[in-house]
Nucleic acid binder design. Structure first.
Length: 472
RNA sequence: GGCGCCGUAGCCAAGUGGUAAGGCAGAGGUCUGCAAAACCUCCAUGCACCGGUUCGAAUCCGGUCGGCGCCUCCA
């Protein structure tokens, strides 16, 4: 049983073997922190959080590095357009670093609600300008970059492997590239390693080529190798970053003599009504307002109910279906005894455990893994009804492990924070209702149940007496 | 124009050669005072369409139609 991952670089499924036995280095491209975190930001972190948990469970020590881009790169192509951070700063009347800081925390707050564990290292681009300059110098020394008008560009024509990741033919890239209005580039395919700062540009650093700021792609080449080594295991990112971002990262790093990432993993986009969520189309769902009406754990669950390399649709109907499904899993879990009692057969769910593992090992097939959990829920409910409490208790432990620890879904929703007052009042009403039922005054009993329901409290009668919960 | 992906039940969504997972919704049933929950049964002779390869194809090949992505910032 071994983990197999789809490697974008080779376009094949490959058995995963870390460079150093027992250790795994992962680098994931994080967001540019210049605006509110949205749904699109959630998929990668959730998927990689699960990958990390799965690897750690196999006994690997994982160093998980995910950066934050806090240098504003250009809204347009490399030689024109505005700095996104600076633009936002102007709009909000803030220092660019205040903008970065504000959205940095907004992003991590949202990730925390999604149950995404903090990366082991969160490097920021602005903290690694020295290293970015060093890489640029190394490329100049090797003759694979050139200075022009205070900026430094990577010379794509000098690097034959360019295009290896995205499968593009460099010679055909020229035609597709837009005509540069005013550019210091020798070739439109070339990309900036260092940009000269115009006088009004706020974020700027001194360099051998004058004041400027680093190009977008350099930061990732530098920060990944700084913390994970010149060669490391896994590099992840959204599929929309394959070209040009990752292509350029790879070219730069290898051109500088670093073997770089061995496995490239790319998650697919999210859609809304079949269309990619896109900022430019005003077609995004911000996380903060979404979490007001949907449990973040439902969002996480829904994300994991589709394979990370497939498109995932977030139409409300689909999200509600996930909510109902998770409610069922949680309800089942809550109904199982937490103590084994008369010995719980530890091998009770060994087949389910094996199926779950096989699904996870198959390029992180979380939808299939979740399907196994639904099967377990049904079988364990049956065991519970048959009085096989040890078996049901074992299922509870299994859920703690697989749904909770591996998939990172809180199995028991936060119910412990009901106020004593609410507990007391509902309890009192239920006593009245029980009394009514005893004297067979069902009209009164039903009235109480209906009115509680209208207030958001559902009541269910069980052999052990009434059970209530808040409706969501 | 170049490169690439996708089209599986009302909806979401696995499955990449061996005879269609799972979830939601829906129908019937058991249980219940009635419900709810739970459980049982049913719900795609067919995986956009047309050809081909094969003993066998949702899965491979060719074509057609439809949707989408990247090639510019994007997760």
């Amino acid at each position: 049983m071994a983990l197999t991952l789809y490697n974008s670089l080779t376009r094949r499924l490959e058995p995963f073997e870390p460079l150093v036995p027992g250790r795994v280095g992962i680098y994931v491209c994080g967001p540019t922190v210049y605006s509110e975190p949205h749904l699109g930001h959630a998929r990668g972190p959730v998927v990689f959080d699960v990958l990390r948990r799965w690897l750690e469970r196999q006994g690997f020590t994982v160093r998980y590095v995910s950066n934050i881009t806090d240098v504003g790169h250009l809204t347009d192509d490399a030689d024109d357009g505005e700095d996104k951070l600076a633009k936002r700063a102007k709009l909000e009347r803030l220092e660019p670093m205040e903008v970065a800081e504000k959205y940095f925390w907004a992003y991590f707050d949202a990730m925390e609600q999604l149950g995404v564990r903090r990366p082991t290292i969160v490097p920021r681009a602005t903290g690694h300008v020295t290293e970015q300059i060093a890489l640029t110098e190394a490329l100049l020394e090797r003759g694979l970059a050139y200075e022009s008008g205070g900026s430094v560009y990577f010379d794509v024509s000098a690097w034959d492997a360019y295009g290896e990741l995205s499968g593009r033919d460099p010679s055909e890239l020229v035609e597709g590239t837009r005509v540069e209005v005013r550019s210091d580039k020798r070739d439109p395919r070339d990309f900036a390693l260092w940009k000269r700062a115009d006088p009004e540009h706020i974020m700027r650093w001194p360099s051998p080529w004058g004041e400027g700021f680093p190009g977008w792609h350099v930061e990732c080449s530098v920060m990944s190798t700084k913390y994970l080594g010149d060669e490391f295991d896994i590099h992840g990112g959204g599929i929309d970053l394959v070209f040009p971002h990752h292509e350029c990262e790879l070219a730069q790093a290898r051109a500088a003599g670093k073997p770089f990432a061995r496995y490239w993993l790319h998650w697919n986009m999210l859609t809304l009504g079949g269309e990619k969520m896109s900022k430019s189309k005003g077609h995004v769902v911000d996380l903060a307002p979404l979490f007001e009406r949907i449990d973040p754990m439902v969002v996480r669950f829904h994300l994991l109910r589709s394979h990370y390399r497939s498109l995932s649709d977030f139409a409300d109907e689909a999200l509600q279906a996930s909510a109902a499904g998770l409610r069922r899993l949680r309800g089942a879990y809550a109904s199982w005894p937490s103590h084994a009692g008369a010995g719980s057969p530890s091998e009770a769910w060994s087949e389910a455990r094996a199926r779950f593992a096989a699904a996870m090992d198959a390029d992180l097939n979380t939808p299939e893994a979740i399907a196994v959990l639904f099967d377990v829920a049904r079988d364990a409910n049956k065991a519970r009804d048959a009085g096989e409490l040890g078996c049901a208790a074992a299922a509870r432990a299994l859920f703690d492990e697989l749904l909770g620890d591996v998939l990172g879904i809180e199995v028991a929703p936060a119910t412990g924070d009901e106020s004593e007052l609410l507990e007391g009042v509902v309890g009192l009403l239920l006593e009245q209702r029980e009394a009514a039922r005893k004297r067979r005054d069902f009209a009164a009993a039903d009235d109480l149940r209906e009115r509680l329901s209208a207030l958001g409290v559902s009541v269910e009668d069980t052999p052990d007496g009434p059970r209530w919960r808040r409706l969501d």
